[in-house]
């Protein structure tokens, strides 16, 4: 928590960047877990729950990231994204559909005029183990095909080796390749392990130009957890206080139930503040979550649960 605006050249060298990141206050692991657990006991019912469910739907990045993805799969996901519940047109569309770069063109075409954004994982997702040139061309291709949001992965190997400058430079280069597309920087917190690392990686990514910081690829366990998200929300809150710029947060992976989603919204509200309760600043990276949100939404409005067969599996 630096109290003064950092000198613009904190990334002048790896040494200066390290000094800056290691000067951030530590995170007490027990305390962070405890705070997240306490906020999980908030009771969100009736009208508040109905509004929270609709907001959560509007924050979903509906995701398919399988080797077996095909144009057909992406098209059906796009239909689902634009009209999540075919039986109820009052359900809002999700925020974005998230696909691999080679399927961006298919998604863009399928989502034309729906208001749903196309996001693409790039930079040799999920491991990030490719030369920078390959990562940049991956990014450029996705943007050229019409992706308006890019989800990149940081070089965790470089981060854990202490080469923060390399991580920083790659984010700057990818941001440049985004040419205006929104950049979400995936920290892969399951590989960074400690909350101190999560805080440092968050600040590093924000200073390098991230529009969003994202927990995970969904390919590594653990993926998003409430305490990790808490630490990242503290980081964006403090970064805003320092610079005036609001960076978004996206937990991804392992968020399956409405209860989980609402707990994340409570975290956002009570840690970063209500300004972040907006799809422009908070997203939920998920696939199966959407159907549970739809089921709970119908339960609230009709009083009965329809079986899972009433919701499409796309």
């Amino acid at each position: 928590m630096p109290s003064t605006t950092p000198a613009p050249d904190i990334a002048a060298s790896n040494t200066s960047l390290r000094a800056y990141l290691h000067g951030l206050p530590g995170v007490d692991e027990v305390g962070a877990r405890e705070r997240a657990a306490q906020l999980a006991t908030r009771s969100v019912k009736t009208t508040a729950k109905a509004q929270a469910i609709d907001l959560a739907i509007r924050m979903v990045d509906l995701t398919t990231l399988e080797g077996a993805d095909t144009p057909g799969k992406v098209r059906s996901l796009a239909v689902k994204a634009a009209h999540p519940d075919p039986a109820d047109r009052s359900v809002p569309p999700v925020a974005a559909v998230c696909v691999y770069p080679d399927l961006v063109a298919v998604a863009v075409e399928a989502l034309a005029d729906t208001g749903v954004a196309v996001a693409s994982v790039a930079t040799a997702f999920p491991s990030g183990r490719s030369p920078l040139a390959a990562k940049l061309s991956d990014t450029r291709r996705a943007v050229a095909d019409g992706a308006s949001e890019i989800d990149m992965v940081i070089d965790r190997g470089a981060f854990l080796a202490g080469d923060y400058r390399a991580v920083f430079d790659q984010i700057v280069a990818v941001k440049d390749a985004c040419a205006g597309a929104h950049l979400k920087v995936i920290l892969e917190t399951g590989e960074l392990v400690t909350y101190d690392n999560v805080r440092r990686a968050s600040w590093l990514a924000m200073h390098a130009g991230a529009d969003f910081i994202k927990t995970s690829t969904g390919k590594v366990s653990p993926a998003a957890t409430p305490p990790v998200t808490l630490v990242m929300l503290e980081a964006v809150r403090d970064f805003h206080a320092l610079t005036g710029r609001r960076v978004g947060v996206k937990p991804a992976g392992g968020i399956r139930t409405t209860k989980d989603a609402i707990r994340y919204l409570v975290l956002v509200n009570e840690v970063a503040g209500a300004a972040w309760l907006d799809p422009a600043l908070f997203r939920l990276g998920a696939s199966s979550l959407l159907n549970d949100l739809l089921m709970q939404r119908a339960k609230l409005s009709t009083g009965v649960y329809a079986g899972p067969d009433y919701y499409t599996l796309d």
Binding site: S43, Q51, L277
Partner: peptide, 10 residues
């Protein structure tokens, strides 16, 4: 957004 986290009475 503000209304949601008025947290309806529980």
């Amino acid at each position: 957004a503000d209304e949601i986290f008025e947290y309806a009475p529980a």
